[in-house]
Design a protein around this nucleic acid. Structure first.
Lengths: 241, 241
DNA sequence: TCCGAAGTTTCGGCATACCGAAAATATAGC
DNA sequence: GCTATATTTTCGGTATGCCGAAACTTCGGA
């Protein structure tokens, strides 16, 4: 029994936002999605989240027992991925065709994703050559709702001595993106973990290749936001699954 | 005392829509803008219009005495032109870059115009090469709010024997646009009025040049929707100012 | 086991924007 | 000038989505 909810349509912009945010909170980390995390991310009061979750459950988009975390149903996930697809295609378009910087696109896409039609998205997709990732390295779901997460981990989960390539950078904080752009660190940059300073100090790594290579100290915020794919063997990871 | 309302921002999407529609109803014809005309154009109940007009008056966007037609203030006109600019630039983009047909763009633009940022509009404008008209021949206001209406009149106001060039076609009815596209009549097409059939019958005109020229019968709907600029001397007009 | 802190839900209220029905006004015809 | 008709406004009422305050659950520590 395939559902109609493969494409946003009847759902309000708010419903779309909540569902997309529930997905986003569990896309890269699998901590439970609680009311308060949602409230913080959406900048609304806890009570608003509570009410909306009840509504989402009635719509069959989430499963929820009171006082417990919320989880997307298959329908909810389909809707979320449709919204993520919209968001990431729009971001890609803004950077490629309208000369937006990668730290500027998030807010604009956030608004547009609720407004454009399926036709618009399909034509944009074609015009951009069916891209598989957006400017931050986030994978773009297909029209059918399939998504392939890159085989990457946050920089802070790599052991000393291991090398890789930057695959994704969280777009949550525009300032962080601006900083990295200024430092010429972006998707595709090679990195090699040199070591860490004890007691929560920065992680030192070698960035770039050849003459462009240099040492760099990554603070907490950065090592969590920068995701790296191992080069060569698939070792070098110390994260518990 | 220049107002801040040169760019949409604080106004709700509804307010923007009402103000733009008030402008649109008086852009090409100067009949008074009444509640019922607004209600029909916006597909809402008369009572909703009445309430919104009071609000617009409070916001200083319209002048209104009860039971009389409504008129835009200078601020209202500025806001309306900003919205019209958005709408027409988006339409131009959809046709030029996303292969929309000219009959498909209106509804999409109607939604997007409320959502995109000023930055988006400015970059779009630059990318499109600062176009002066949209795909239907409607003039695009400048960022400063200036607009130049073409020196055109509806086809039905031309005397027999006069020639001109199609300058604008009202985009109100997508089916009409589709029909004209199929008949290969569009912006720039040369026309010469041959005569009219009595008792409200069609207007006969010669369309196109050289071997592509042919006679065509234009019904009421068409002669009101097709706007023509005189070629050569500025005669041939029988419309009362 | 029980208590308190932290997190979640319920409740009454607010703002926007819509509606239909009823009341108020304008205008055209006589 | 006066009334009938058409138009406009006012008046309750609805739906969505937000809020803060109060009530309620959960869960860890003593």
């Amino acid at each position: 029994m395939a559902s109609k909810v493969s494409t946003p349509g009847s759902e309000s912009s708010s419903v779309q936002d909540y569902v997309k945010t529930i997905y986003a909170l569990s896309e890269w980390h699998d901590e439970p999605v609680t009311s308060s995390r949602l409230a913080a991310r959406l900048s609304v009061a806890n009570s608003s989240v509570s009410e909306m979750i009840r509504k989402l459950a009635e719509l069959g988009l989430v499963n929820h027992t009171p006082y417990r975390p919320v989880e997307l149903t298959a329908d909810g996930r389909r809707l979320a991925l449709a919204m993520v697809r919209r968001h990431r295609l729009i971001e890609t378009f803004l950077v490629r065709d309208l000369d937006y910087r990668w730290d500027e696109v998030h807010d604009e896409a956030e608004l547009l994703e609720h407004t454009v039609s399926d036709t618009f998205i399909d034509r944009l997709d074609a015009r951009l050559g069916f891209p598989s990732v957006d400017p931050h390295g986030d994978p773009i779901p297909t029209a059918a709702g399939a998504i392939t997460l890159p085989d990457a981990l946050p920089l802070d989960s790599f052991d000393d001595g291991h090398s890789g390539r930057v695959t994704r950078i969280s777009d949550e904080d525009p300032q962080l993106l601006r900083f990295l752009a200024a430092e010429d660190i972006g998707i595709g940059s090679p990195v090699e973990v040199l070591g860490r300073t004890p007691f929560g100090g920065p992680l030192r790594a070698r960035v770039g290749t050849g003459t462009g290579a240099r040492d760099f100290s990554f603070g907490k915020e950065l090592t969590g936001a920068i995701w790296v794919e191992s080069v060569g063997r698939h070792a070098g990871c110390s994260l518990v699954p």
